[in-house]
Simulated scan of single mutants.
Amino acid sequence: MPAKLSTICYIHDSTQRSTKEYSIKEITGISRLSDEDPTKIIYLKIKAFVPLDKEIETHIEEYENGQVIYLRGKFIACNGWYTVNATSIKPMPNLDFDMMPAVGINIMVTGLTTQTVKNVDGESVLDFHVEENLGDREPKDFWLEMRHNSNINYLANKTNSINQTMRSTMAILTGLLYYQESVVDTSTSDESTPGKHILKLDDISLISSNRPNTSAQSINLPWLNQESTSSRNTPRTPRGSTPRSKRGRVTLSQLSPTRKTRSQSLASALQENPLPTMTQNETSSET
């Protein structure tokens, strides 16, 4: 079951070693999660395999420590960080940590669930199990909690149908993934609520379901149902006249900047989020 990731991240440090066939690059990346708060970050343990044979095409471009890159690859979610096998690395030379946009972790995964949807505080919630092969010595699976606004009918119609007549359903999910830290009881120092990966759902496609065959049913295309005379009902501006602007309209020059001034600091981000222990295991170059 594939698990694909794309994001923009800062190269905190990197190493490189060679085998008979590959140059193996290992990167500690930092992705920002908030434009307003530069201390909200997530760490990425990235591996890239670059063939030593120059005749073999690769999408791993040259980079340097301190650069910002656009990253794509297979991934597994761990507690507070992600391990990634990069399939594409493209440097973004005009950006640094302070200027790097907080695009978050965009993912496409195939997951399995045995649950029916729950409504929690106005959100539809389901847990999915995700598997991905990054090598014999790397984690192979993780759980994520899918969430979406229950009032979004397009998503609700799909998620509400999951496992109504089946024991399990496999689905392709896309959206923004983030990690919710565990909650610790200050009186006992015990973990009262474990951390979890949460997917803010953009779209979902059900792979296995007991939907009836609709191939014989007519397809309702909304753009074919528009009245051909609709354009006649649209008011037209008389020739030679100048359209009047509506009162109260705000021009672009009057708009204030949409982004707040950010107190960006790599040092404060690292201080607030100490580098986790990300075991540097060997990853098979055959993946």
Rank of each mutant, 00 (worst) to 15 (best):
A3G: 02
S6V: 08
I11Y: 09
H12K: 15
D13C: 12
T15K: 10
Q16R: 11
K20D: 14
E21R: 11
E21C: 01
E21K: 15
I27Y: 04
I30V: 14
S31R: 06
L33M: 15
S34H: 04
S34R: 06
D35P: 06
T39S: 15
T39I: 07
L44T: 00
L44E: 05
I46C: 07
I46N: 04
K47D: 01
A48E: 02
A48Y: 01
P51Q: 04
G66F: 08
V68D: 06
G73S: 01
K74Y: 12
F75L: 07
N85D: 09
S88P: 05
I89T: 10
A102G: 04
A102H: 02
T110R: 14
G111P: 07
G111A: 00
G111S: 08
L112Y: 02
L112N: 02
V117E: 11
V125F: 07
V125L: 09
L134Q: 02
D136W: 10
R137F: 12
M146L: 15
R147V: 02
S150Y: 01
Y154H: 09
T159C: 06
S161F: 02
Q164W: 05
T169M: 08
L173D: 00
G175L: 03
Y178V: 11
S182K: 15
D185V: 04
S187G: 03
T188K: 04
S189W: 10
G195E: 06
I198L: 07
L199H: 01
L199Q: 07
L206T: 15
S208N: 14
N213E: 03
Q217R: 13
I219T: 12
S231W: 13
N233E: 11
P235S: 02
P238I: 05
P238M: 04
G240I: 08
G248T: 03
R249C: 13
L252A: 12
S256L: 15
A269M: 06
N281Q: 08
